[in-house]
Design a protein around this nucleic acid. Structure first.
Length: 391
DNA sequence: CACACGTGGCC
DNA sequence: TGGCCAAGTGT
């Protein structure tokens, strides 16, 4: 392995830095967290940006800052508020970790984010990349920040198809400008996202082309080597969209909260569902029927008598997660109701510490609850189906 | 090291 | 439609 100091001379390292920073200054991209950077805002922006495009992050960031302007506000918020604000961004453990990090900052650091990379690293949701990014951007600590963009740029500069994390850290650490570490790190990332792109990199306009070993061999397009992933499994789920009228004829939907820690979509609300062995129509009908029978037996309809009307078939919703492909097979089940007043908005009497809970949610409350994208689609379709009629 | 963990955009 | 990828982290 080539040692960092043997690859480029001192003068060449200086030139790489100045070329990169020059382009960064000229472009001078305007981003909300660059307006009035504070450690809190930089941390929020970096966590939101994990595995997520900046254009997607910006509106979430702006809303987040209005709702949780500082560590103290975030630390005092409920998990439900936090997840609601994160709803649609994905990787919801980031929100739970950021929430917990804010509480640690309040409790252990007197409300001030620590500057030391190791201290940052110990906060939940802060790994090597985020610690480096926050330390360098918010505090001027001379430390690299290696994300996917930087990895690709370095793989090409060094002509290394599979650079190890240690090698990437060493090279990025050699290059980082001691005078402007935060700007340098961002410049390297922006080069990767705008010029040194995964496909069809624009080497002609790259300020570092003359230093690029991959380019010299004409194989920049093959660097770094992509990891092959097996295609994720395709699963099926029967979904019961159970509705009833409550006080004043207000429409309510029976929703379930997923266990609040660990696992897919932790703490998010959804329509009750059952994983299916087969996607056959009868399997769906049977599963939904079982669910409804159970809800009635558990008293969710209170003293109400009568059977639900025949379930209505809603359009199947296909949704790809990062590691599985789901087909949701929803049925709209209208209960005779009314929802007993004692159950409206109340706690789940059948929650025996499983972490899951059921609740009759008014249509209006759904906007406040953290509900994943696929479930939103199901609920929207169900509400649209109900609206034209009087049920 | 491998895998879980969301969503949206692009081709 | 399907595969790839994005300012990664936790286990």
């Amino acid at each position: 392995m080539t040692l960092p100091q043997n690859h480029w001379s001192r003068e060449e390292v200086d030139e790489i830095r100045s070329r990169l920073l020059e382009g960064f200054d000229e472009r001078n991209r305007s981003l909300p967290w660059r307006e009035e950077p504070t450690p809190y805002r930089i941390l929020v922006s970096e966590v939101m940006s994990q595995q997520t495009r900046l254009e997607t992050v910006i509106p979430y960031y702006l809303r987040w800052l209005e709702r949780f302007p500082d560590f103290s506000t975030l630390a005092r918020a409920s998990q439900e508020e936090v997840l609601s604000s994160w709803q649609g961004l994905g990787y919801y453990s980031r929100a739970r970790n950021l929430h917990e990090a804010a509480r640690e900052v309040e409790a252990r650091y007197d409300g001030e984010l620590p500057q030391e990379p190791e201290a940052l690293r110990s906060l939940p949701g802060v790994g090597p990349y985020t610690a480096g990014a926050v330390a360098s951007i918010a505090f001027g600590v001379v430390i690299p920040a290696v994300d996917g963009n930087v990895r690709r740029v370095l793989a090409r500069l060094l002509d290394d198809p599979s650079p190890t994390p240690a090698r990437l850290r060493d090279w990025a650490g050699l290059l980082v400008d001691p005078a402007r570490p935060g700007d340098f790190n961002q410049a390297l990332m922006e080069l990767g996202s705008s010029v040194c792109t995964p496909r069809s990199p624009e080497c002609g306009s790259c300020p570092l082309a003359k230093f690029c070993a991959g380019r010299a061999r004409g194989r920049q397009e093959e660097l770094p080597r992509p990891r092959r992933r097996p295609s994720p499994p395709h699963l099926h789920e029967a979904v019961a969209v159970v509705t009833a009228r409550g006080t004043g004829g207000l429409l309510r939907v029976l929703l379930r909260r997923r266990p609040p820690s660990g696992g897919l979509l932790a703490g998010m609300w959804e329509c009750p569902g059952v994983e299916l062995e087969s996607s056959e129509r009868v399997a769906v009908e049977s599963a939904v029927s079982h669910l409804v029978t159970r809800f009635v037996a558990e008293g969710w309809m209170g003293e109400a008598q009568g059977d639900p009307r025949d379930p209505m078939v809603l359009t199947t919703v296909d949704h790809s997660f990062s590691h599985r492909k789901m087909s949701y097979h929803p049925r709209l089940v209208r209960m005779p109701g009314p929802v007993p007043t004692s159950l409206e908005g109340g706690e789940d009497p059948t929650d025996r510490g499983t972490g899951t809970a059921l609740r009759w949610v008014a249509e209006r409350e759904m906007a406040e609850l953290p509900i994943p994208v696929a479930q939103r689609k199901i609920l929207d379709a169900a509400m649209a189906r109900l609206r034209p009629e009087d049920c």
